[in-house]
């Protein structure tokens, strides 16, 4: 007897359920691949990281597995000058880069929104820095900032008479890395803000014009308040994403000179490469903690501005 010959309602176990139950089953089946992927690469590793952060574990020496050491790793972090320096630079990097990306992004968004002939071209151009690999941006700018053979110091010297050493000076290196992050991600911010700008009704600007508003007052009292929720979400996204920045400083300066441009992510990478798994995991937990605090501040800001709107 072939399965086809069975009564229709008995053919699948699904058919015996009520309509509502059937929907639950379908929803769960549809969600399985996504949840499995996230569990495998995010939720489970996160729990493991939390566990390892309380242990001393170096697979080269600790053959019996992780040794529980309580908060030892975190005490070590508090006294580790490199970790403290890397937290400092990461925060500076994130705050400065995000601020510049939002400000310049708003300016570029206005350019993209302006009615002129090169509109289509400008919208292709704006995708380029977002789309090219960070690897190439970091290495290319490292070459361009080179003290002897680089184009940027040469152009600054010829054009403005500025003599600056970039990547071998601790302060200028910090600046150079931030400027590449701004170059790379401002276009993305601009695209998002462009969509926001297009959502603002033109009537508001016309009404303001009739009332004698200048460009600046329209920007100050219409555009920015209308975009505020979007500015906060975009800013939060950039902050959270850039807190984990790794490839840019890693390839552009290698974290140097000294440890002046070492970020938290690179410190984690270094410690995992030296097989200090427990210590690397605890620095990872510190990074997660910073992200959580910043994220909470962002949510609070968003609520405040969303309600007042």
């Amino acid at each position: 007897m072939t399965p086809l010959a069975l009564p229709r309602r008995l053919r699948t176990p699904l058919a015996r359920l009520t309509l509502r139950q059937r929907f639950y089953v379908i929803a769960i089946i549809l969600l399985i691949p996504a949840l499995a992927l996230r569990t495998f690469t995010a939720f489970y590793p996160f729990i493991q990281t939390a566990y390892l952060s309380l242990h001393k574990y170096n697979p080269a020496f600790d053959h019996n597995g992780p040794v529980f050491t309580g908060l030892n790793n975190f005490q070590r972090i508090a006294n580790d000058p490199v970790v403290r320096a890397s937290i400092g630079y990461t925060l500076l990097f994130v705050v400065a880069a995000t601020f510049l990306q939002l400000t310049l992004g708003l300016a570029v968004a206005h350019l993209l929104n302006a009615p002129f002939r090169l509109k289509a071209l400008s919208r292709t151009l704006v995708l380029i820095p977002w789309a090219i690999p960070m690897v190439i941006a970091a290495l290319g700018f490292r070459w361009m900032f080179d003290d002897q053979f680089g184009m940027i110091p040469d152009l600054l010297r010829r054009g403005l008479g500025v003599q600056m050493k970039w990547l071998i000076d601790p302060y200028n290196a910090k600046l150079a890395v931030i400027s590449v992050a701004v170059w790379k991600s401002t276009p993305f911010v601009a695209l998002v803000l462009l969509a926001g700008l297009q959502g603002i009704s033109q009537d508001l600007y016309e009404a303001a014009k009739v009332d004698g508003a200048t460009r600046f007052t329209s920007l100050r009292f219409i555009t920015i308040p209308m975009l505020m929720p979007l500015l906060i979400t975009t800013g939060m996204f950039m902050v959270v994403w850039q807190l984990a920045v790794f490839d840019l400083p890693f390839l552009m300066t290698g974290g140097g000179p000294g440890f002046s441009t070492t970020v938290i992510a690179q410190k984690i990478y270094l410690e995992s490469n030296s097989l200090n798994y427990g210590y690397a995991a605890s620095i990872g937990m510190v990074l997660v903690g910073i992200v959580a605090v910043v994220g909470a501040i962002g949510l609070w800001l968003f609520r405040r501005f969303d309600v007042s709107e």
Binding site: A34, L35, R38, F40, T41, A42, F43, Y44, P45, F46, Q48, T49, L52, V240, L243, A244, F246, A265, I268, Y269, S272, Y277, A280, A281, G284, M285, L287, V288, V291, A292, G295
Partner: peptide, 20 residues
């Protein structure tokens, strides 16, 4: 949970990921 997990830095959980 799915959306917020985007904030979990990939590098922070690198070690257990490697072991897994």
């Amino acid at each position: 949970v799915l959306i917020l997990s985007v904030a979990l830095p990939q590098i922070a959980v690198l070690v257990p990921m490697f072991e897994t």
